[in-house]
Simulated assay, not measured.
Amino acid sequence: MTRRGRRFRRRGDTVIGAILLTALTVGAGVFILAVATGWLGVSLQSSTSEANRAVLLVKTSAQLNFERVFYTGVVRNVTVRNIADVPITITRIEIVSPSGVLKASYPASGFTRIGEVQPQQAIELDSGVVPACSSCTSFETLRMRIWYVASSLFDDANPMISVDEMRYVESVFVHPPVGAPARCPLPPNWMMVDVVDPVTYTDSGKIPPSPNNRVYVRFPFASSSGTATVDLQVVNATGEYGFATNTVPTISNVLQPFAGSFAGFQVPLTVRVLSADYTILQQEWVFGGIPGKAHASGVTLWSDANKNVNVVEVELGVNDVVGGNYRVTVTLYDCNGAQILSRSITVRIPVGIFTDSVFIDIPSTPLTDIKRVVIGVEEA
C-alpha cells in the first residue's frame, strides 16, 4: 500500500510539471505572437503610408504646367495649371540663372503654403509672391522655378517634413529693362489666337462655296479652360460682311472650323474674331493679295515657351499659270492701335507652283501685345 502511494505521488508530480511546462510554452507563444502581430501591424501601417506617399509622388510628378509668365520691373504675374489628379500646394518660387545660381526667391528661405491648385485648375501668382530680382540685368536669360507637392503631404506646421516629396517645374524667360511697362495688360477673361486660315482658291483668292466655305482658327491659350461661343466676321474688298459662329474650346491646339455666309468672298479679306464670353486678344487679321495672281491664304504666329512671337508664317496662294515675284509684308499692331513692327520679304514663285509657305523673322514680340495682324502681298 505504501509503495503504491509513493507511485501515485510521483505520477501526480509528472502531470503537474507537464501542465506547467505546457502553460509556459503556450504563454510564451502567445506573447511572441502578440509581439509579432504588433510589429506586423506597425510594419503594414508604415508600408501603407510609404506606398501612399509614393503613389502621390507619381501622381504629381511633372504635373504643373506654365501657361503664362509676365515679368517686368513693375508687374510680375505667372499662371500655372495643375494637370494632376490630386490637389497640389505651391510651396516656393525661385528665380535662377541658367547655371542654377539662385537670384531671388519667395519665401526668402525654406518653404511655405503659397497657394493650392485643384486638379485641372489654374492659379495666378502675382507680384506678392513672384519675387523681384534686384540682381538681374536687362535682357538676362533666367528660369522661373516653382516648387510644389501633393496637398495631402504638406504640413503647414512643419513644411520641411515633405521636402523629399517636393518637385519643381521651370520656364525660361528674359528679364526686361527695369520698369518697362506692358503694352497691353491682360483683361480678366481672355483667349488668344495664333492661326487664322481661310480656305481660298489658290489662283483667284476666292472662298469656295459650301461645304468648303470655311475659316479655321486656333485658340492655344486662355485665362481658363472651358468652352466659349466665338463669332467670326469676314469682310471682303467691297465691304460686304459674312458671319459664322461656333462653340470652341478656350484652349486647344486643334484648328476650329467656322462655316458661314462668306462663300465667294475674294481677297483682300478682313477676319475679325470676337466673343461675348472672353476678350479675344488677336482680334483682327487682314489677308492682302492681288486677285488672280497671289494672296495670303493663312497666317501663323509662331511663339516660344514664353509666348513671344519670333516668326510669322504666311501661306501664299499663287496662280500657277503666271507665277511671279512678290513682296510679302507683315505688320503688327497693339491694343492701342499703335504699330509694333513691320517686316517684309521678297519671294520668287516659278510657274507651276500654286502655294508656298513664307517665313518672316521678326523681333521677339509678346503674343499678348498683338491685337491686329496685317499681311500685305504686292508685286515686286
Rank of each mutant, 00 (worst) to 15 (best):
T202L: 10
M144D: 04
I161V: 15
D164S: 15
W147E: 04
V374H: 07
A263M: 10
D155Q: 09
T60P: 12
T331S: 13
V174I: 15
Q282I: 08
F287W: 07
V74R: 07
I114R: 04
Y168K: 00
C184D: 01
A51C: 02
T245W: 03
P363A: 09
Y148S: 02
M144E: 04
E165D: 14
T89E: 11
F262L: 03
Q118L: 14
R343W: 03
A228T: 09
V178C: 05
Q121C: 01
D203P: 00
F31R: 11
Y241S: 06
R11I: 02
G242T: 09
R327N: 14
V330W: 01
Q45G: 15
D85M: 11
P366Q: 09
R3D: 10
S61C: 03
A62V: 12
Q283H: 08
V196K: 01
G376S: 14
F287K: 02
A34P: 00
I345S: 10
N246M: 04
L44P: 07
V299R: 02
S47A: 15
L255T: 04
N52A: 09
T329C: 04
S97H: 13
L57W: 14
P363I: 07
I90C: 05
D126Y: 08
A132P: 01
G12P: 00
S109A: 13
P119Q: 06
E50S: 13
V15K: 08
N306G: 15
K293N: 10
Q339A: 14
S127K: 15
Q233P: 00
L269T: 04
S261C: 06
D197K: 11
T79K: 14
G242Y: 04
I83M: 06
R68T: 02
R76N: 04
E170P: 12
P107R: 08
E379T: 15
V86G: 12
G337L: 10
T329G: 01
G376E: 03
V35R: 07
V163E: 14
R6Q: 10
S364F: 14
F70E: 02
A157K: 05
I251Y: 01
V358N: 09
G128H: 12
A305I: 04
V373S: 01
V374Q: 09
E165P: 00
P257I: 02
L367D: 01
T365Y: 03
R76P: 02
K103M: 14
E50I: 08
E50V: 09
Q339C: 12
E116V: 15
V101C: 09
I349A: 05
R11F: 07
Y278P: 01
L33F: 15
N236G: 07
C335V: 11
R343D: 03
V96C: 14
R6P: 00
V351N: 06
S204P: 02
K103S: 10
Q63C: 06
V199K: 02
S47E: 13
Y216Q: 06
H175T: 09
I19Y: 08
P268E: 06
T368S: 13
M191I: 14
K293C: 03
V321Y: 12
Q256Y: 00
Y278K: 03
N308D: 07
M166A: 08
L341Q: 04
A276D: 05
G292K: 03
F219A: 06
T355E: 14
T329S: 08
Q63A: 15
R4L: 15
G29H: 11
F354M: 13
R167D: 06
